[in-house]
Write a protein that binds this DNA or RNA. Structure first.
Lengths: 338, 338
DNA sequence: CTGAAAGCGCTTACAG
DNA sequence: CTGAAAGCGCTTACAG
């Protein structure tokens, strides 16, 4: 590599001091307009770029955000939950628009990621993205909080969790999609997806589901809840268990689209027709959900807004402003499965 | 934020010089084993992390790789080509395994991205990922080369392109999937996808397709090639044009899965059955391809290996080693559409 | 508006 | 094996 130009080289060529070069390049109003022009012109000719390491070291900030995507460590293939992909896209764009670089890392829960990024000054703050088991990493979140690390978490608002979150109103989504099924005249409802402390998002969707039944005096129409983590296989297995039961629902509300695709497969393997025999609905509106047979009715989360809010809230935290949890409404996407 | 501990704090507590602390923390063999232990212990207690900006500035390297994903600027929604998502996953993991951080940026072609990352010392090298129009950004690649920036490109090997590339053997893939259709007894073949200089990957798939027909003395079975860029909509439009033609193929080879999903939709809208009337095959094996009706026969690219090769080749370049272009074979994935 | 100087927190020759 | 010192390339009080 050729050796890079420094601000001293420019100073020499422009006949000014290095301090003035620095000021001119950062558009400081302290510098004469004509001088600024000249310095910037020379910098451009030399293809000069401010050395970020030096600049960051001096300024004690990195203008970089780290995105930590944590998944179940078991999934070592390169399949990422498609919902997070959409989030990644919108976070990347929001960071770029705000003048921040984005460092991306996939973590699994064992890793000693907490604080690594901010403590080493690689990033000014963290965005935590992860479905799955909150309790498993609660301790690490607490640790982040104790170390005064700036971070924003995607997920359910929860007074017991430290830190600021941005999330979907999963309760509202579960309520809404259940009302949709009720209007379609469905009579016997099952819910597939874990509904416990470990999966607060799924639990909120479940609570929305059962409350919608209650609101329509249909509690007795609920035939049961069946556990499944967030994968297609889990959905398949749970549905197989359900079909051995004598519950015989005519509508299955799934905690995620991935679960729902597994349920559709299980129905197919059991000679059940969707939606004639059983309506199936999912959650997330991942790309695949438009292509299943039949295409899935689901709840769309506004990933674009979500990414923007995560980034803007984190930047506020970095700048010492206060921030409150955000909750976004979901939108019903009706397709052939219901 | 509490103020961070520095190597001087540790030196004070350990009763050694700051230089020794630095050596101990980098596991230098120059330092007494017992001293090293003690220093590392104290560092751990203080939750000390080496300041990356200072360290990078001094070492003149960042241990960071920048991934530039460039897409058609028209697509401003957060949909990213699913194939690249898989690549992103594997690149992230490979970087992490090699001790590099990964900076991610989506670029569109207008942006002044060339060299920005390495010149500013934010990254030691670049990975360029993009389907699409090579000629449009060839100039920028040339510029990267001139500035001695370290970079690796995903895509077709091409003697006219500067830089090192890692790519799929698209010719072999196109050949293989066509032979598969021939074995199924298909008689009239159409190809959907641009096949020109602007899309060298598509062109290689197309050349594999026609050469497979030639190899089986079936040239006259080829009924035509229809342009489409890499989107579903483009596939739909191209198929609609094809169906107005009197070509009437019984097999359509698509340059990508996304195109193929559009073709399936167009068939459906025209009352054509796949595979009874026409077999359809795609390329990439994106997640959606397993869920279309019928599920798509396609060519799977080894994204895991691809990511690993991109990263390992880039690191070799950064370390001044020489690297040659890599070409990976695809694998046929047979499903219901053929 | 400009310049001389300090200093961000490291790593690494250099001297012992 | 250890320490004192230089210096990576900036930004920003401080003095004018």
């Amino acid at each position: 590599m050729k050796s890079k130009a420094t601000s001293f080289d420019i100073a020499y060529l422009a006949g000014v001091s290095q301090s003035t070069v620095s000021r001119a390049l950062s558009n400081s109003s302290l510098v004469n307009a004509e001088t600024r022009e000249r310095v910037q012109q020379i910098a451009k000719e030399l293809n000069y770029k401010v050395d970020k390491n030096a600049s960051n070291l001096r300024k004690q900030r990195s203008s970089t955000i780290a995105l930590l995507l944590f998944e179940d460590p078991s999934s070592d293939d390169s399949q990422i939950n498609p919902f997070f992909i959409a989030m990644l896209g919108s976070i990347t764009k929001a960071c770029s628009a705000a003048g921040y670089d984005l460092l991306v890392s996939f973590q699994n829960l064992q890793d000693d990621w907490h604080a690594e990024y901010e403590d080493s000054h690689k990033a000014d703050g963290l965005i935590l993205l992860g479905y799955g088991d909150y309790l498993d990493y609660q301790q690490k979140i607490t640790q982040l909080e104790e170390q005064n690390t700036h971070f924003v978490r995607w997920g359910a608002h929860d007074p017991n969790h430290p830190g600021v979150s941005v999330g979907s109103n999963n309760y509202q989504g579960g309520f809404m999609i259940t009302e949709h099924l009720i209007k379609q005249g469905r009579q016997r409802f099952a819910f597939i997806g874990e509904a416990g402390n470990h999966y607060p998002e799924f639990m909120a969707r479940f609570n929305g589901h059962t409350d919608a039944l209650s609101a329509h005096q249909l509690d007795e129409y609920f035939v049961g809840q069946f556990d499944a983590i967030f994968t297609e296989d889990a959905g398949y297995e749970a549905a197989m268990v359900l079909f051995e039961d004598d519950a015989k629902p005519d509508a299955i509300v799934c905690a995620s689209d991935l679960i729902a695709t597994g349920v559709l497969r299980a129905m197919n393997d059991n000679g059940l027709h969707c939606p004639n025999d059983i309506a199936v609905v999912g959650y997330d509106n991942i790309p695949v959900s438009a292509y299943t047979t039949p295409a899935l009715t689901t709840v769309q989360q506004n990933t674009k807004l979500a990414g923007e809010l995560l980034v803007s809230n984190l930047i506020k935290l970095i700048n010492g402003q206060s921030v409150t949890d955000q909750l976004m409404s979901g939108e019903l996407v009706i397709r052939k499965s219901s």
